[in-house]
Nucleic acid binder design. Structure first.
Lengths: 264, 264
DNA sequence: AGGTATTGTGATTAAGTGAGTGAACTGCCG
DNA sequence: CGGCAGTTCACTCACTTAATCACAATACCT
């Protein structure tokens, strides 16, 4: 049929389409039609690895979703919409979904999302931790203290820091490489740097975060599933909120001590 | 548990979450956690209509997706991320998906998406027809002639007309109500209006579109599933492309005649 | 007009997934 | 040590979906 690189494109396309809610056959049919531009059930069946008699159902599914048009001839011919249109199409559908969802959830959310908590919450996966960090930072009213491994300082986090800095929240960051500090100076000019006192380098460095001295998060990098070589890919974090929260109390003490020492 | 309006919010939220790929239990659990803010498997089971012993699996699924955090106490407690974060979360996931998809499709798309076609393609569903109309309009190099039932002139279509008008494509629109014409004059000042000669009102009015005199589309509104009263909700359209395409030839003749008559 | 190949529809079976249930294990309390 | 709540695990049932087959409809060819 086609070469190897093309096959890879095929399978990723099919995978995404399935994730977006299409059946296997429909996904394969659509991909086939994109490369064929236009074709009969026979044509599709040959390149898509879909039983010919099922191409009709798959194409119906696609037509109902607005992804293919049908030529009412004999044999019937199918035509896939352009990739740009496909993108727009799913974008729209998705917007619908998320809007409906957040609307409904907002109506349900209990008003009392308390900031006072007793225990600590655990979070795993680097992306999820980053999300929680952004969450916490964005609730800041007064102060953010953040100490992080450099490779974990993603664009999204810098952005959220910059945003709250703009509305008057003071930012305190542990010192990092010259390169990173230059970059931060660009994006968050008001940030204050402080010297990290303890040796951070011999641990699988993660992050330490304190927001308004009442919400804190700490994370470490761990080897994903004990593989060799031990590449620290996964991250696990714990966080807590509230002035009396044990994690908050501990981190607040640590940071306060560090910041005070720095000032001397 | 809760009143009727709240139950509706619940079910739509669950529906959307399932559509976004969560299992039924996971969706119900998440919704329960959003209204509880925080709770044990017991709590969730009571309000979510999920067997208590399955809450753990559902919560695991949610944790893997980054939608809930876990407190490692006994009993375990679960906490749902905020609605805003939920929105951002799915947005990100979705962006990923669509980007990967369109990338893959672009690599597959055959270069020769010919503009010369023989037959006519059929499209159903109002939204899908609108999408195809936008598609066709956006390919215009020279001229767009468009005649439409007023209620089908959605914002998206006006927008696409405005876009191509800005790049020098001449727009010709059939006359409509004063109100609509005023609106159009705002958004597409360069559009020229022409008088519709035949009586459009006694038919279930749809659309007639011609782009660059080589791509045309015509649609009518039809009663969805022969219901009473016959409300025209659904739309079906046919379109074709290429100078020799029969549909194009016919519509071109019709439009040309109309436009010429108008000029006198 | 009749026969043949191809196209389209529907029925049927098999396999996999997910919902729902209950039993067993764990740790925590008196 | 026994009871109890919390958690995990194994299993059944139902439903969806993939896959195959048989047959009807249609076009095409001679």
């Amino acid at each position: 049929m086609s070469g190897d690189p093309s096959d890879q494109a095929r399978s990723t396309a099919v995978k995404q389409l399935k994730a977006l809610g299409l059946s296997t056959y429909a996904a394969r049919t659509f991909v086939a039609l994109v490369s064929l531009d236009e074709g009969t059930a026979q044509d599709v069946s040959e390149v898509a690895d879909v039983p010919r008699t099922r191409v009709y159902d798959a194409a119906d599914e696609l037509r109902d979703r607005g992804l293919v048009d049908v030529k009412q001839s004999n044999p019937r011919r199918y035509w896939a919409i352009s990739t740009e249109t496909t993108g727009r199409h799913f974008e729209q559908e998705y917007d619908h979904r998320v809007t409906a969802l957040t609307d409904a959830l907002d109506r349900l959310a209990s008003a009392n999302r308390t900031t006072e908590q007793q225990g600590v919450w655990t979070v795993t996966d680097r992306g999820t931790v980053a999300e929680r960090v952004v969450d916490l930072i964005s609730t800041a009213d007064d102060e953010v203290v953040y100490m992080t491994a450099e490779e974990l300082l993603t664009e999204k986090i810098v952005e959220s820091l910059s945003t709250v800095s703009d509305r008057g929240v003071s930012i305190r960051l542990a010192e990092m490489s010259q390169f990173t500090e230059d970059r931060l100076d660009q994006e968050i000019p008001d940030a204050q740097l402080f010297e990290s006192l303890w040796d951070w380098s011999d641990t699988p460095a993660g992050r330490l975060l304190m927001v308004d001295r009442e919400k804190t998060l700490v994370s470490v990098l761990v080897d994903a599933s004990g593989e060799h070589p031990p590449e620290p890919r996964d991250e696990t974090a714990i966080w807590g909120a509230g002035a009396t929260n044990s994690l908050v109390v501990v981190l607040k003490a640590m940071f306060t001590w560090q910041l005070d020492n720095n000032r001397e």
